[in-house]
Write a protein that binds this DNA or RNA. Structure first.
Length: 728
DNA sequence: GCAATTTACTTTTTT
DNA sequence: AGTAAATTGC
């Protein structure tokens, strides 16, 4: 039996109430992951088969970490639990059952970009101007309709609004094209199982029987499709346990329905509700600050989160001059924190609303030699060269994949231009075939020039040659010789530019990841590899083994904790974010702010800039309303020296130029230098004895001093290595 | 059909 | 300001 001694009574109740519906309303830092982990381990220790447990998490990272923890409690049987994100679990199920809904198990998964490209193609063919509707907008509207399960039969026209006629045309063609390409988008991974289960009751029954225990993490961020899937899958035993916190619902924009958690007990009248209200993570100050802000939300489950942790340091609100000053300030604070020896780089997170904010910090941290890692932004698998290779691989396992076909048919260049491709599209459309399978038809065509025919035919032969080979057990070797044959690596190598080398290396890295996957998953196929990497999130790739400060968006930070958190850019328009012509959802932005604050264990810094650069222009900023809402008993407000000048000069901020920066940075370096060295400080050196600092330069690891020792010798020293002690 | 130059667009957040 | 798309020139 699992030892439950380190759980509190509520946590224990959530773990041991194994039968019937359970809703765990788990406040930030209240041990939600602990409960899920122990609940699963507990179930297994009762003799319940791990393969009858379905655990749905929000990220792959959460799933693999939880699995690891369960493995420590119950051993290898943890491997048989069905655990993963909604998308990855149902992608897997769909691979098995694809033939029942007119797909093959090699179906492609289209990401948002690929969906958007399909829509662009449709709009071009339908002669719909992109000025009127942006493809991106249409993609997002279609996606929302799909994950809200709105179909033509139930209100699609109304949902699409004024321009519904054209949108519906595009929508229907989009669905048709994906089907023809044997491809699914992210929403299909949730919708197709619903279709499958509705039309194949015996299949549904199979899974209902198998998954006798269902657990859902981050339930507040499930959407309608996910909710409906759960309702279908829950069998008559109703052993479902959902864990979540309505105050941390931050994915409404992606279709998440807070109602799922708010009305859980309406869906399951006999629900046992367990509230976890003791926070084990943060200091009293941090919790008080977070609470004073979130209580301004009207639409929420009332709860009182409390902690027996210490009062802790006050929360710091720091006014900065602009985003550069903000980054400098954070860098200085981090340097000072690290130099105390009590905080490691990996204990620190810098959280922001938008990915674009990372750049400043990246540049500054580089200069200050602060080790850092950025989660998100331009992720590896989204790089152009990587996507090119992946498109080849997708086409090899699924030759009907028109998107992938279009991406690589003329890359590297093989004399197949736009005109020829348009021609092929016409033939494909006429015969209702995929582009690849239409090549033979094009070759038959009398009107096509011999040169074009030859080019198409050799491409066709190339792909055909590898179509079956790629299903071999050792697909890695097949891919390697395929890539050799298309000479794509040479293209990048020959470029000779730094960019080309980087791309070359990225492809090599991709190869390594394929090889690694093949070795680690001997019973999986290339299709599985492609599927898994399509569903990887930025956060999944972050290994916290590295001792680096981590920079990420507030969204990515959900579920994580750090000793020290810098929540930056607390400005109106940025947090809460406002986009032109968009009505911001203040309550969701407030929850986002709340999520940010509650990541912090010991220290929380909230910063904002008086001026911020946007699209190359500097705009004056107003501090976030969330800062106004904070209970001021728990904060210290300060300003950087540059911001002080700004305040004094009263709006005449344009006079602050490079010189001011350099001056101020010099002053601040001294103030924040690791040993608190100042010119004039008296120091002790192991060899040279006592001396006086007469010059100081740089900070952090790069800090240099000139010390005049009692003997009269002046020495240039690196503070990092000199082992100085400050006497005065 | 490709390279160089100009223009347009971007900054929500992501499976 | 930085990047991707579009247009021009060869």
């Amino acid at each position: 039996m699992i030892n439950l001694d380190n759980l509190n009574p509520q946590q224990r109740e959530a773990v041991t109430t194994t039968e019937g519906p359970v809703l765990v309303v788990a406040g930030a830092g209240s041990g939600k992951t602990l409960v899920l982990t122990y609940r699963i381990a507990y179930l297994i220790s009762l003799g319940i088969s791990p393969s009858s447990i379905l655990a749905l998490t929000f990220t792959n990272k959460a799933a693999s970490e939880m699995k690891e923890r369960i493995r420590k409690l119950v051993g290898k049987s943890a491997d048989y639990i069905f655990m993963g994100t909604f998308h990855s679990i149902f992608a897997r199920i769909l691979r098995h059952e694809a033939h029942l809904i007119g797909y093959t198990k090699e179906y492609s998964i289209y990401d948002t970009d690929e969906s958007e490209n399909v829509i662009k193609g449709i709009m071009k063919d339908f002669n719909i101007s992109e000025n009127h509707f942006s493809p991106r907008f249409i993609q997002s509207v279609i996606s929302k309709a799909k994950n809200k399960l709105i179909s033509k039969e139930n209100g699609l026209e109304k949902f699409f609004g004024v321009y519904n006629k054209k949108l519906i045309e595009i929508y229907e063609e989009y669905i048709r094209r994906l089907k023809n390409s044997n491809a699914m988008d992210f929403d299909d991974l949730l919708i197709k199982p619903i279709e499958l289960f509705s039309s194949n009751k015996e299949i549904l029954e199979k899974y209902r029987e198998r998954f006798n225990y269902i657990l859902v993490d981050e339930y507040q961020d499930t959407n309608t499709a996910q909710y409906y899937l759960l309702k279908m899958l829950i069998n008559e035993n109703k052993n479902i346990c959902c864990v979540g916190d309505d105050a941390q619902s931050i994915y409404k924009w992606r279709g998440a329905e807070v109602r799922n958690i708010l009305e859980f007990n309406k869906d399951f009248p006999e629900t046992k509700i367990v509230r976890l209200e003791q926070n084990y993570r943060s200091t009293k100050s941090i919790l008080a600050v977070a609470d004073s802000v979130i209580k301004n939300n009207v639409y929420q489950i009332p709860k009182t989160l409390w902690t027996s942790n210490e009062e802790g340091d006050k929360v710091n609100i720091i006014v900065c001059f602009d985003e550069r000053d903000e980054a400098n300030l954070v860098a200085r604070k981090i340097t000072a924190l690290i130099s105390t020896g009590k905080i490691r780089p990996r204990d620190i997170a810098v959280l922001y609303r938008t990915n674009s904010q990372s750049r400043n910090f990246e540049e500054t941290f580089l200069r200050s030699s602060i080790p850092y890692i950025i989660v998100g932004g331009i992720e590896f698998y989204k790089r152009k060269e990587v996507k090119d290779i992946l498109a080849y691989l997708k086409l090899l396992v699924n030759p009907k994949d028109d998107e992938s076909f279009l991406r690589i048919v003329n890359f590297p260049a093989r004399g197949i231009g736009d005109v020829s491709i348009e021609n092929l599209k016409l033939i494909a459309n006429r015969n209702e075939k995929s582009l690849f399978h239409s090549i033979p038809d094009l070759v038959e065509d009398k009107d096509v020039s011999e040169r074009i025919k030859k080019n198409f035919q050799s491409f066709y032969n190339l792909i055909s040659k590898y179509l079956t080979l790629v299903h071999q057990k050792n697909y890695y070797e097949v891919i390697k010789s395929f890539i050799d044959e298309i000479k794509i690596l040479q293209v990048f190598k020959e470029e000779g530019t730094e960019d080309g080398i980087q791309r070359y290396e990225n492809i090599i890295q991709l190869f390594n990841s394929i090889q690694e996957f093949q070795v680690n998953n001997p019973d999986k196929s290339l299709t599985d590899y492609l599927s898994e990497i399509s569903l990887i999130a930025d956060i999944d790739n972050w290994e916290d083994r590295k001792n680096s400060v981590v920079l990420m968006t507030l969204h990515a930070a959900k579920g994580l904790e750090f000793k020290v958190v810098f929540l930056v850019g607390c400005e109106e328009g940025l947090l809460p974010l406002k986009r032109d012509g968009d009505v911001e959802d203040i309550e969701e932005e407030r929850r986002l702010f709340y999520v940010g604050c509650t990541r912090a264990m010991k220290q929380l810094y909230l910063t904002y800039a008086r001026n911020r650069n946007r699209f190359g222009n500097s705009y004056p900023q107003v501090q976030s309303r969330f800062l106004d809402e904070i209970d001021k008993n728990h904060v210290i407000v300060e300003a950087t020296p540059l911001a002080e000048i700004y305040l004094k000069k009263n709006n005449n901020y344009r006079t602050i130029i490079e010189d001011d920066y350099n001056q101020i940075e010099e002053i601040e370096r001294i103030n924040y230098s690791s040993l608190n060295l100042k010119p004039g400080s008296i120091v002790q050196h192991d060899v040279f004895g006592k001396g006086r600092v007469i010059y100081l330069e740089g900070y952090g690891d790069h800090q240099k001093v000139i010390v005049e020792f009692k003997s009269g010798i002046k020495k240039h020293l690196m503070v990092k290595y000199a082992n100085l002690k400050v006497i005065k």
